[in-house]
Amino acid sequence: MLDTEVSGLLQVLDQGFPPVHLMTGAQARAAVAARRVPVDNLDDVRAAEDRVIDTEDGPLRVRIYHPRGDGGEPLPVIVFFHGGGFVLCDLESHDGFCRRMSKHTRAVVVSVDYRLAPEHRAPAAARDAYAAVRWAARHAAELGGDPNRIVTAGDSAGGNLAAVVCLMARDLGGPPIAAQVLVYPVIEPSFDSDSYRRYATGYFNTRDAMRWYWRQYLGGDTVPEPAHHVAPLRAADHAGLPPAVVVTAGLDPLCDEGRDYAAALARCGVPLVHRHYPGLFHGFLTIAAFGPAVCARDILWADITSILPGATPRKAPA
C-alpha cells in the first residue's frame, strides 16, 4: 500500500478496537464508547436541539442540527442514522459528523437514536428509522425544512436503515424521499462475498464482528419478513426509489454488497452516484482528522447537494 497514513491508522485501529464479537451488547457498547474522541466542531452549526418524538412504538429521541446562515429558503432535511452494527454508537458518536454535514450541505440534520440490538431485534431499528422520516416530513416546515427535499442518510448499519426506509416509504405510502445516501452500507447477512473473503480480518471491520452484529440484530440467523425491510437487496425490485449516493471502500468486507446494491438501483433506473474508494477501509469517512476522510466528505457534501432537486419555490401569497 502506498499510503502510509492509511496503513498506519489501520494498524492502530486494529490493535485498539475491542473484540466486540466476544462481548455482550452492553459491554461492546461501553468499550467502543470509551474510545470516543471529543467533538471539536461544536460551532459548525447554529443550534442543536434534542427532542423526543412520538412513534407507534413509543418515544424516540432525535437530535436536530440547524446550519448557520440566514433563514430564507426552506432547507433540505437529512434524516441521519448512525452506524455501529445495529448494536453500537448513538447520537454522541456521530455528533461531530452530523454537525459537519449540516454545515457543508446547508441542511437541517435530524439524527435518530433508533433502538439498538440485541435488546431490540429487527425490524425495530428500521421501524424507528421510518417513523423518524415520517415525522421529519410532517414537521419539515417547523424545522425550517423543505418537505420535498427529505434525504435519508447513514453509514454502515445506518446505511442499511437509510436504504430500507426508502423501500418502506415506497411500499407503505410515503413520505416522498428526495435522495438516499448510503455510506458503506450493511446490505446482506451473507458473509461469503469476494470482499468478505479478502478482507475478513486486518482491515478494522472484521467478518467475525459482522457476523456477530447481524446475529444481534436478527436475534439468530433468519431474516424476518418482509425481508427487504431488513436486507434491502431482497426487494423484488428497486424501481421507484429515490436517487442514491453510494460510497464504498476497497478494503471493506462490505465493499461488494454496497456495489451490488448500487448496481441493483441503477438497473431499475434509479439515478445513482457511486463513489468507490480503493485502498480505504470500513468506517474511514467519519474519522475527523484523517486526510482521505476529509477528501471523501468534501465530495460527499457536494454529491448530496447536487443530487437533490432545486429548492421548491415558495408559494406566492394569494
Binding site: 499510503d3 436517487p243 448500487a262 441503477a266 434509479v270 474508494y277 480503493p278 477528501c295
Partner: peptide, 12 residues
C-alpha cells in the same frame, strides 16, 4: 488504483 476515487454515475 489506491488514491483515486472511482465513480459510477447512472441516470444523472
Amino acid at each position: 488504483y489506491e488514491g483515486f476515487v472511482l465513480t459510477e454515475r447512472k441516470g444523472t
